[in-house]
Design a protein around this nucleic acid. Structure first.
Lengths: 120, 120
DNA sequence: TGCCCTACCCACCAAAAGGTAACTATTAGA
DNA sequence: TCTAATAGTTACCTTTTGGTGGGTAGGGCA
């Protein structure tokens, strides 16, 4: 297998939390363990396919853990792993910076809305 | 104009620093003002097109400032704006987390290389 | 029997992101 | 006159990412 090469640390980070959905999913899991359906409701714009796909990738990177209950109908919970928790501070800052960015753009006259803020 | 809607702060942040190149560019500009050619040499994998395109978008978001010297051959410098500096801490953490991630993966036996670490 | 529930998989398509290569402009200087 | 130097653009193509709509499993329950 050819050696994977990075030029700068941030490349690796973005490979893990980059893309349209991963950081959003992680921001939700940061506060609580959630079931698949809960995540889907918390992120209404995401499709089923993307949700599971992104969760699989986060699982492969050891950022989230998947816990399957042996029940019918199925029950599956997702939570940050201990390693995933090491992203918590960064995720929070990314949320807060974005909130401020939206505030600024709104103050500058842009038509823009933020539906919910990162409490905590 | 339809109102732009975000559900969570991190969405806005990722729209600005997301993608394959923006965070890398910003991590370089974090330490110093740089000319176009310097950036291209610091990020050898990027194409001319992507470099200017991403810099234009960062400029539009008021994250980087472009300074054109009236010379021939042209000289153009890019630097973080004051507002862009507000990302500096986050960028640093993204770099450091990525470095640690690479270390772990290497320790786990993965063939992986990091060419340069975020000093400072 | 037949339908509900939840998670999730697949085939197929559309859109966005990114890559390549060739081209421009302008002036100093050989 | 011709070339080097730097930043940038454009057309065209490939790859990646994301969306849609369908289908599966299997126990509970009317």
């Amino acid at each position: 297998m050819p050696t994977k090469t990075y030029h700068i640390g941030v490349e690796a980070t973005m490979e893990i939390i980059g893309g349209k959905w991963k950081s959003i999913i992680l921001c939700h899991l940061r506060h609580q363990t959630m079931r698949t359906g809960e995540l889907a409701r918390a992120i209404p714009q995401i499709s089923q396919k993307m949700l599971t796909q992104q969760l699989r990738e986060l699982e492969a990177a050891n950022i989230v853990a998947r816990h399957v209950y042996k029940q019918v109908p199925p029950k599956v919970e997702y939570a940050l792993t201990d390693y995933g928790e090491s992203l918590s501070g960064i995720l929070h800052e990314l949320c807060v910076w974005g909130e401020d960015n939206i505030d600024r753009r709104e103050a500058a006259g842009e038509e823009i809305t933020l539906l919910s803020r990162d409490d905590v």
